[in-house]
């Protein structure tokens, strides 16, 4: 991940810094949220909220405690979780992939088929393993960042990803049918 934003050691973000942060991460954050909601409106809404959150708390940002992308990703990740929890009043749902496929997940029609297919696979993974797939494979973040976003060690994240692959490899016959 690009570490374009340097805030030195001082706390808080200036207007210019905030603008840079926005330009650097808006696309990534949006797609991250989209991968977890599969709904444009929701993704735009939660993206707005993520950056508003960043803005409102910009003076509290302390570079000593974490990098900018880690901070923003954590905000986004928690907002998605809150969104589903509030909506479904269930603590077991972390993103769109946790919703049983029989129910309407309000995803965009363009990706409906793809979501239905992916759901067979992704719903089998625990939420954290899904996040690894999204962050490592789809978002191409380095393990160093992933580890900090997820609050785990790098080694643990790598191990988690290897488990994902083992699991999915075993399910490959199913995947073959779905993706070919």
């Amino acid at each position: 991940m690009q570490e374009t934003i340097s805030t030195d050691s001082k706390k808080g973000l200036t207007r210019e810094e905030f603008e840079h942060v926005y330009d650097a991460y808006i696309d990534k954050i949006y797609s991250f949220i989209y991968y977890k909601t599969c709904n444009r409106e929701t993704a735009e809404d939660l993206t707005s909220q993520t950056f508003l959150n960043v803005l409102q708390n910009r003076h509290r940002f302390d570079p000593a405690k974490g990098s900018i992308p880690v901070w923003i990703y954590r905000i986004a990740r928690n907002l998605v979780i809150d969104f589903y929890r509030k909506k479904r009043s269930s603590v077991d749902i972390g993103d769109v992939w946790d919703i049983p496929s029989t129910e309407d997940v309000a995803c965009d029609y363009q990706v409906k088929e793809q979501v239905a297919e992916l759901k067979v696979i992704l719903s089998k993974l625990p939420p954290e393993q899904r996040d690894i797939v999204i962050l490592r494979v789809w978002q191409e973040l380095p393990y160093r960042e992933i580890a900090r976003i997820m609050g785990k060690s790098e080694a643990a994240c790598k191990m988690m990803f290897s488990r994902v692959i083992t699991k999915l490899k075993d399910a490959l016959p199913v995947m073959a049918v779905l993706f070919m």
């Binding site: 949006y30 444009r40 993206t47 990706v111 692959i165 999915l168």
Partner: peptide, 16 residues
């Protein structure tokens, strides 16, 4: 094959 499929199954999420 597994990793490739996983990469290919990435959902298209262009931002408006």
């Amino acid at each position: 094959k597994t990793v490739k499929k996983l990469m290919e199954s990435k959902i298209d999420a262009p931002i408006d």
